[in-house]
């Protein structure tokens, strides 16, 4: 049992290092929207999701409603349901429900990917071990970002505001370049988002609502026009 925990801990190191830098920019973003260091840390510790938190921070900053918040989290994080379903197939069948409830907590994109790529049995101690450091890295990075945002000069703060967007671009662009349907979906999302932003008719639509509408529209049209062959959806999810 102990060996599995250590093995998991080790597999979590690269994820934790990656999270440290992403959450650094989440911390800066949170600070900009009026969320303090402690609240930012609490959000990262309890949520463990970059896109969901970013949308949440946007809504909190814009003074959005709770309904808007719930809807955005549902849509943006819906992919985790798919990952949990896949993960569920790989966990030992005899794993008790309370252990599954613990494992679910930090089933992020990266942790899911490592778990699915893991050869050998996914024991409870391995899964918990693997999640420890990424949770620490994600929360710690948020604190560092929020603190740095307070002390850094405005010119550097302005430059760092682009960090999280840079990471989003780094996720979408390579996929869009190789997988044509992803490019179309991304272009549609960008187009809808600009329409809602710039056409006065849509000025009543809030930032959170816009994310929901664009995500649903672009993904739905994408799914209709370009159904994904069954085996790729598991790998890329």
């Amino acid at each position: 049992m102990k060996g599995h925990f250590m093995e998991g801990l080790k597999d979590g190191v690269p994820i934790a290092l990656g999270y440290l830098s992403v959450s650094f920019s989440v911390g800066i973003m949170a600070l900009k929207e009026g969320i303090n260091v402690f609240q930012g840390a609490l959000m990262s510790l309890t949520n463990m999701t970059s896109a969901g938190q970013f949308a949440g921070i946007t809504i909190i900053g814009a003074g959005g409603t709770l309904l808007e918040l719930v809807l955005t989290q549902l849509i943006i994080n819906l992919r985790y349901a798919l990952m949990s379903l896949s993960l569920s197939q790989k966990l030992p069948e005899e794993m008790p429900v309370w252990q599954r409830m613990v494992v679910a907590f930090a089933n992020t994109d990266e942790i899911f990917a490592v778990a699915m790529g893991h050869t050998g049995s996914l024991t409870f101690s391995y899964m918990v071990g693997m999640q420890c450091l990424p949770i620490l890295g994600w929360t710690g990075g948020t604190v560092l970002g929020a603190v740095a945002g307070q002390v850094l000069p405005p010119a550097i703060g302005s430059a760092l505001s682009l960090a999280l967007y840079g990471m989003f671009i780094a996720v979408v662009v390579p996929a869009a370049v190789t997988i044509r349907p992803v490019l179309w979906v991304a272009l549609m999302a960008a187009f809808f988002s600009c329409m809602i932003c710039y056409i006065p008719l849509f000025s009543g639509i809030s930032a959170g609502m816009s994310i929901i509408i664009c995500t649903i529209l672009a993904s739905a049209i994408g799914a209709l026009l370009f159904p994904v062959p069954q085996e790729t959806d598991k790998k890329e999810a």
Binding site: F168, A189, A207, S219, D233, A237
Partner: peptide, 19 residues
């Protein structure tokens, strides 16, 4: 399955452009 596959790309793009 396809819808869920496209969601991350759509939402990351919508959050990036034009903000």
């Amino acid at each position: 399955c396809s819808f869920l596959y496209y969601v991350p790309y759509a939402c990351l793009t919508a959050m990036t452009v034009p903000t």
